[in-house]
Structure formats: structure tokens, C-alpha cells
């Protein structure tokens, strides 16, 4: 078994199985949540549901992250807020605007777009990795967090960190032969895809789900979400 074969295996059957588990698993999770039951909403429709949803998204994604001091979560633990925010921003930029990733989206959806210049991506991927390490140290040292952290949380951290670090090393051509680090990157990505439906990282999907519902409920009552 040589690394070229391992690369072909991880780009081929392994990634394929991971994607199968990812798609079927997430559909399963979503249906399970949807069918848990709905409380009947007897409130009269006073405003616009759609407006509530739009406001909720705008506030959650574009306004509040940049004026964090108005939020209690920030005042309670600034470090988690900032590191967590930077981590999410970097991950988004690298996943959506990294050239290698754009090719993946293109192969899945049939269209691509222009990527960001490599130095900018390098900067943000480094920021993402550092944030992850900061969050880990915080979790390891914070007395309350330490007590709250159970085994699956460490797995969550690991399966997200591994693709990031291997991707960074690969894109910068450091230390390893390219096919070796490329295989390791794909293996860790497959691990992540397989783990997502079973763990809390599925919040990347459920976030939008709950944002929509909460926005709609608030909009119906004509209050600001």
C-alpha cells in the first residue's frame, strides 16, 4: 500500500461513504427534531413572519457579532465569544473561498465562484487554528467548563481541528509530502462528516432551523426577535 493508493482510497470510497452517512444522518436528525411535536401557537398574527425571520438572521449574523458588548454571553466570557467568533468566521471564509474547496462545491453543485487570494486565506486559517487552540486551553483550565465538558465534546473539538490543521499544512506545503498530508486531510474530513450527524456539530444546520422558527414566532407577535 503506497500513499498514492491511500489518496485514491480517501478521495474515492472513503469520502463517498462519509458523504452518504452525512446526508442520510442529517436528514434523519432533522426529521426526528421536526416530529418531536409542535405546541399549537394560538397567538394571533399581528406582524409579518417573514420580516421576523429576516431581522433575526440579520441581527444574528451581521449585527450582534460586531457589537458584542450588548450581549450577556460576551459580558460573561469575552474570550469564548471572540475566539469562537473568529473561529466561525475563518472556517466560513476558508470553506467558501478557498480555491480547492470551491472546486469541491463546483463538483457537487455544478457552479463555482472566484476564490480569495492565498495570503488572505492563509491568514484566516491561521486565525482559525489559533482560536481553536485558545478555546481548548480555556476549556481545559476554566473550572466550570471543565466540569461541564464530557467526552463527546473533546471528540467534537478533535474532528474539527484535524481537518483544519492538516488543511493548513497541506496548503502551505509544510513538512509532509503532499499526497501524505492530502490523504490525512481527506481522512479527517471523512471522520468529521461521519461524526456530524451524531454530535453537536450538527448545529451548523440546526442553527438556521431554530433561527427561522424563532424569527417567525417573534414576527407573528410583532416583537423584535
Amino acid at each position: 500500500m503506497n500513499w498514492t493508493n491511500i489518496l485514491n482510497f480517501s478521495r474515492g470510497p472513503l469520502l463517498h461513504v462519509a458523504m452518504i452517512i452525512f446526508v442520510a444522518g442529517l436528514s434523519f436528525r432533522l426529521v426526528r427534531v421536526l416530529l418531536l411535536g409542535w405546541a399549537r401557537d394560538r397567538a394571533k398574527n399581528k406582524g409579518s413572519k417573514l420580516w421576523g425571520v429576516i431581522v433575526n438572521y440579520l441581527k444574528g449574523l451581521f449585527v450582534l457579532p460586531f457589537i458584542p458588548w450588548v450581549r450577556r454571553t460576551f459580558r460573561h466570557n469575552e474570550l469564548t465569544f471572540i475566539a469562537g467568533g473568529l473561529f466561525h468566521l475563518s472556517l466560513f471564509l476558508v470553506l467558501v473561498f478557498g480555491t480547492a474547496h470551491i472546486l469541491v462545491w463546483k463538483s457537487l453543485w455544478g457552479f463555482g465562484w472566484k476564490g480569495l487570494p492565498t495570503p488572505i486565506l492563509a491568514f484566516f486559517s491561521a486565525v482559525g487554528i489559533i482560536s481553536m487552540i485558545v478555546l481548548l486551553i480555556n476549556r481545559l483550565t476554566h473550572p466550570v467548563l471543565k466540569m461541564l465538558t464530557k467526552f463527546p465534546v473533546w471528540i467534537n473539538w478533535l474532528v474539527v481541528f484535524l481537518p483544519m490543521i492538516t488543511g493548513f499544512i497541506m496548503a502551505r506545503h509544510l513538512w509532509f509530502r503532499y499526497e501524505v498530508i492530502f490523504s490525512l486531510h481527506l481522512i479527517s474530513v471523512s471522520l468529521l462528516l461521519i461524526w456530524i450527524p451524531f454530535g453537536r456539530i450538527s448545529h451548523f444546520l440546526f442553527y438556521f432551523f431554530s433561527k427561522t422558527i424563532h424569527g417567525a414566532q417573534a414576527g407573528k407577535r410583532a416583537v423584535t426577535p
Binding site: V23, F28, H101, L103, V104
Partner: peptide, 25 residues
């Protein structure tokens, strides 16, 4: 592109997988 999966998850199989997940759920 070299970064893309070798075996593509086409629309038909994606729909089947979503169906399987939904049915199981």
C-alpha cells in the same frame, strides 16, 4: 480538480439518501 471527490454523489443518490434518512426518522 484534484480536491474533488472521485466518486460523485449525484442528485438521484442524494435524494435516495435523504429519503432513507427521512423514512428512518
Amino acid at each position: 480538480g484534484q480536491s474533488t471527490p472521485i466518486i460523485r454523489l449525484d442528485r438521484g443518490s442524494t435524494a435516495t439518501l435523504v429519503g432513507v434518512g427521512v423514512a428512518a426518522g
